[in-house]
Amino acid sequence: MKPSPGLVGATAAGTLVSLGLAVLGAGGLATFFSHPARIALVVAVVVMSGVTAFSSGNLSPGVREDRANRWVLPVFGLLGLLSAYLPAYTERLGVWVLGEEGVRWLGVVLFAAGGVLRIWPVFVLGYRFSGLVAIQPGHTLVTSGVYRVIRNPSYLGLLVNSLGWALVFRSGVGVLLTALIIPPLIARIRSEEALLHEQFGTEYEAYCARTWRLIPWLY
């Protein structure tokens, strides 16, 4: 299946906006790129965005969608904009700055690891992966590979990725914003699980019984 133009466009736009806001928050290009870890962050962002463009993920409502869950999208959007700008801005002001330079590189590692965990399931699911809570045509339940242990690896990747971004700027505010992602994320997970249970019944119940929702051995 060909890449979704909508997903490619949204990814490209999100990348440009996020990096632009971060540069603005840091006080300009020279200041932003004065730290090698930030350069590494930009490289990671560009690589991940490019890889995503080759996936078969989409923004399709499919054959059935839980439209009631769409409220999380503007919430994620707002938190994403704040997370793009405030960590760099608060670091520039010296507000709630965490640790030393090593924290930045820990952030780069977490950002990259979270990005891989975020993108990998998109390729595993292919056309079944949608930015909406939806059942796609010919939808089947995937329970192997990365889905053998946790049911929502992409969402775990999102949290790790967001935390990594915050730490690149040594930002306590960024860590707080990452925590604020959790409530709407849990709401989305529950909406997806309800839809999958309705679609796959006992097969999905059995799958849930032997896996973790988000974090192995914790949740």
Rank of each mutant, 00 (worst) to 15 (best):
S34V: 04
R70C: 01
V95L: 11
G20F: 05
V51K: 00
L79T: 04
A13P: 02
P74Q: 06
A13Q: 00
L86T: 07
A13T: 06
A22F: 12
A13D: 03
R38F: 15
E65D: 08
L93M: 10
V95S: 11
V51H: 00
A44H: 06
S49F: 08
D66H: 14
E101S: 07
G80P: 10
L79C: 06
G102T: 09
A68Y: 05
R64C: 06
L79S: 05
V45T: 05
N69F: 10
S60R: 06
G107Y: 08
R67K: 13
R104L: 15
V46R: 00
Y89A: 07
E101A: 12
S56H: 11
N69H: 08
V17S: 01
V97K: 15
W71E: 03
G50I: 04
A30D: 13
A44M: 12
V72S: 03
W105G: 15
G27E: 10
L79Q: 05
T11P: 03
G25N: 04
V51S: 03
G14S: 07
V17A: 02
F33W: 02
F33T: 12
S60P: 04
D66W: 15
S55K: 06
V103C: 07
S56F: 13
F54G: 03
A30Q: 11
T31Y: 02
R104Y: 12
P36R: 03
V43W: 06
V63H: 09
F33E: 11
W105L: 15
A13L: 06
W105Y: 15
V63W: 14
G99V: 15
V47Q: 01
S34M: 05
G50K: 00
R38Y: 15
G14F: 09
G99P: 14
